[in-house]
Write a protein that binds this DNA or RNA. Structure first.
Lengths: 334, 334
DNA sequence: CTGTTAGCGCATTCAC
DNA sequence: GTGAATGCGCTAACAG
């Protein structure tokens, strides 16, 4: 038999304490079933030997692994780390360990990870899943599963609704006197992009603003720079970008071209992943990814306890964070 | 017995295929021991039932969990995600799953996580560990363990040596004609900060430059902004910051004060976590965290296979990435 | 309160 | 090549 860690087992503790396995087991799971005396003896022996219950054996016996899996498209995308951190902290509070999976935005990889994790977790959190609805439903049938930023009816999900914040952004710009703005889009297949784009359109229509939509296949910063000339060419006086990185790219290009922000042109980002770390500090839409992570974990923990699989749709509203990149239209170009 | 997932077991497959458990087990681990015929039958039955080997049971039996643990101080610190991503990808190549732990920069928490993971992983990677040398050595005695950015003799470790890149930065500034520069420090207890600070001093002495060191207890961006007036007051014409965020803060404040970069003042960051996403694009020191993650994992995998615990000290040199925030001193202030 | 017994699902001897 | 038996370390009835 291959190498094995040499940790003391329940039997050795039992022998050392002069009791049986059962009592040792109980001492670690239901101490109230034992006399204080025995518990003390057992803990002393355990301490002495450096005994720690074997998680794997316990899992095999009980079917509870005390683990959950968290799968994201890309750990390195600044949107996710705070969410991961929050989820991890929340899991920790319930003594759960978390497997982290990185799908690389790839459905195949995501599916593979789910399979690999499957045997050793009690449930899943899929963030911005790239899987098809059918696949998600299938997996949800096998194990408790909650979604973040993916809206599949019947599957518990928490959604960050950037529409509210985006609408506020449009209103904010309207109030500042802007009459024409452009929405600088994000990744083609993205649920968030669709949501934000239509939110801009809807709000603009309501307020009588003109809006030009520019689409994008490339990611973030570079795209922000490249698209800026076209944005200016539309004659608009403000832009709302799909995300902060795109906005940051625009800021860089505008500075390069000597266009003052917000005096000559206003820019709004989305997701607030940069904090105030741009210059000028970026007006943006809050993202609430921390709450999303926390909420998803609470949902999951809930499902694990009362194994009722409720159809929850937990929506987190966003709001506008006004900083320094938006200003009155009077002074703007045109 | 509490809830249990209802996956088919090896026995059901055996029954369906008309063989015994043993054969099914072999079909999944050492198919070459069986006739092609039986293997085919077994796989067919397994497929039919949707059988997947139970990872936990297998781990209990073999002592190999196919998992490793990765512990970082803070997932949300932009330095770590690329490292995590690389490590995770590398683990995946060897069919390992990775537990992610977030220590919150807290030794207690780190210790607790190691304990919790202990029973279900074959090894650990500790990134920028906050544990004492003694604790690290103790844990390394129990299970294969490799360190990143922590230099404990006897424990396999991979170190990112920012000293080389920092020295290049000083040389670069000297070449541009700068005679006096300031090092804007980072967190007090940080190994990296000490390393960088002394690298700046050493290189400056060698090249006959004057250097002022400003220390910092606060993190990053805000500190960069606040410290800028003092930096300018020194009469230096260039600054090297502990990290990119600090540099970015300085950039923002310099812009605010109308000091042109790099015409009036030069700035160098460290870690290259921002890519070219500042304006002007930041000259900085590469970080190689991706390679560090990959290397650590390869080391660990190596230790798991040939269980020889070698004393490896793997050092990754860094180098200067010249972008747009450094320029000749002639035109600078003073 | 505590000991006895029987698995959890699988890998691995050892026979045949 | 394949089957039967044993045990990984622990929990959970069932007794007493």
């Amino acid at each position: 038999m291959p190498p094995r860690q040499n940790r003391p087992t329940i039997n050795q503790v039992a022998a050392a304490a002069g009791v049986t396995k059962s009592s040792v087991s109980r001492a670690f799971t239901r101490p109230e079933m034992l006399s204080e005396e025995t518990v003390r003896k057992i803990f002393a022996a355990a301490e002495e030997l450096g005994y720690v219950p074997n998680h794997t054996a316990r899992a095999l016996s009980t079917g509870r692994h005390g683990n959950i899996a968290l799968i994201v498209p890309d750990v390195a995308n600044p949107f996710f780390p705070p969410l991961i951190r929050a989820a991890q902290a929340e899991a920790d509070r319930s003594d759960y360990c978390v497997f982290l999976g990185n799908s690389d935005e790839n459905p195949k990889q995501e599916d593979k990870l789910i399979g690999r994790f499957g045997g050793q977790v009690e449930g899943f959190v899929l963030v911005s899943s790239r899987l098809s609805d059918a696949q998600i439903i299938e997996h949800a049938g096998r194990a408790p599963l909650v979604l973040i930023n993916r809206d599949v009816p019947g599957i518990p999900r928490v959604l960050i609704d950037s529409a509210t914040g985006v609408a506020q952004a449009v209103a904010h710009l309207a109030e500042l006197g802007h009459r024409k703005l452009v929405y600088v889009g994000g990744p083609h297949g993205s649920w968030s992009n669709k949501q934000r784009r239509s939110a801009v359109r809807r709000a603009a229509r309501k307020l009588g603003l003109e809006v030009v939509v520019i689409s994008n296949e490339f990611p973030a910063f570079e795209f922000g720079r490249k698209v800026t000339p076209s944005v200016l060419a539309t004659g608009a006086t403000a832009a709302i970008a799909f995300d902060d990185l795109t906005a940051q790219g625009m800021l860089a290009e505008l500075a390069e071209q000597g266009v003052a922000v917000p005096d000559d042109f206003s820019v709004v980002g989305c997701d607030d992943v940069l904090g105030a770390a741009t210059f000028p500090a970026l007006t943006t839409v809050s993202n609430r990814s921390v709450e999303a992570g926390r909420a998803a974990l609470n949902l999951l923990m809930d499902m694990l306890q009362n194994q009722a699989i409720r159809d929850v749709r937990y929506v987190l509203d966003t709001s506008l964070v006004i900083r320094k990149t938006t200003g009155p239209a009077e002074s703007a170009l045109q």
